[in-house]
Design a protein around this nucleic acid. Structure first.
Lengths: 223, 223
DNA sequence: AATAAAGATATTTTCGAAAATAAAGAGGTG
DNA sequence: CACCTCTTTATTTTCGAAAATATCTTTATT
């Protein structure tokens, strides 16, 4: 609920980022000997960060056999999508009902920052992909920032982070689709600011399902 | 996802139990000096367990100032209830649709074990309250055990555990209500076995809201 | 050659000492 | 007496050595 120790938070974040961006292969072992060198921290600190990632579903652990990177699969993605959609649309509905002027401005600002990157030509856009990830997260967070249920925000956040892994998989497949994404984000922003709950929900759902569809295709073994 | 280290799991469970049962006051500090004595484990081990409880929302942490027991409040309970209901009914619906014979027998068995305790006279029932908590959990888990979404089960589980804290608050207020609970659990079991999704959902929702209502009254400051 | 036992190696897990940080107390100054 | 500064105490956080556990290798046995 409150803030986590600084170094630890950073370590967990760095680890999470490395897992999301496939620096470690799914299901590969995470040995302390290697990790302590890579991140220049002690075993205990690492263990703590891994415990956090365990609860977020990024790693698994077998007693006595250590930690592994959690696997990815099309079926798991399907689970994540369904839950994420439910949580995100719920949070969005609440936010639309209770959001004030400041909430609106946060959305406008976050959307602007996101669209600046999404308008770039593909190469430039790819160069700044990490930044895009961050701004994309901020945009979606801004939409629901007026949601008054801390727990809803929290659970949604877990699923959003999980989706990051699958978004990374489709990273390269989005070449021609940037303009579509740009348009979708704009439409969602407008529907939310117009306080049109059904429309906002509908657009958001389509937006998310579309992205997911590409990841599922990549993950499903071809004949 | 996979199994956590044995000693750690136990430590986290013991700590969780002590928080749920108010052995530690909400918002009170959890000092390592005391905890190492109480649980007879090293600091690192404790830290790991607390990190797990942090992610489950049972403790909070301020960088440099250590861990505290998470607070309880009527508004938080309201959040938890709404989310738990959504997740539990979703999981239940899936389970009813995909559950097989074995799933049914697990439910029958779990319900039987639960009803044996709930049929006891109040004093006997209270003596075995910890056992009741366990059997109650097992019953509810059996209902959704055929749900095929691991993530749904997982998130539901987090919220169920959170509710444990609030169930404890109403523990003493349930004096005359044991027979009602017994009847409710029976009705839910029957609806589920009859594969009547709407009825099962309805009964489950009423059952949960009822329990929650008592906790909310206890938590709302009186004039 | 397959299996088992024993030994050697690799890895995780636990622990408490040392470093870093925050909180409390003591002493001085306007 | 309030307010700042320094010192002391209390507490958290980090770290790596030691214990426990798992894995691999070798050797012996049928």
């Amino acid at each position: 609920m409150t803030k986590r120790s600084q170094t630890d938070r950073d370590l967990a974040s760095r680890l999470r980022l490395d897992i999301v961006s496939s620096a470690f292969e799914p299901e590969s072992r995470l040995k302390f000997a290697e990790l302590t060198k890579r991140y220049e921290v002690g075993i205990g600190t690492l263990r703590e960060a891994l415990t956090l990632l365990l609860s977020e579903g990024f790693v698994t652990v077998d007693a006595g056999k250590g930690f592994r990177v959690a696997p990815v699969s099309a079926t798991e993605l399907a689970e994540i999508i369904e839950l994420y959609l439910e949580l995100e649309t719920r949070a969005l509905e609440q936010a639309i009902k209770t959001g004030d002027d400041e909430w609106e401005s946060t959305i406008v600002a976050a959307h602007h920052r996101l669209s600046l990157i999404e308008s770039l030509p593909w190469e430039k856009r790819m160069e700044r992909h990490e930044e895009w990830v961050e701004r994309h997260r901020e945009f979606h967070e801004s939409l629901i920032s007026a949601c008054n249920s801390q727990w809803l925000v929290r659970l949604r956040s877990i699923m959003f982070n999980q989706l990051d892994r699958y978004r990374f998989i489709t990273k390269l497949a989005t070449a021609g689709r940037d303009q579509i994404k740009l348009a979708e984000h704009l439409e969602i922003k407008n529907a939310v600011l117009a306080r049109d709950v059904p429309k906002a929900k509908y657009l958001l759902e389509a937006h998310i399902r579309d992205t997911a569809q590409h990841a599922i295709q990549k993950l499903t073994p071809k004949p």
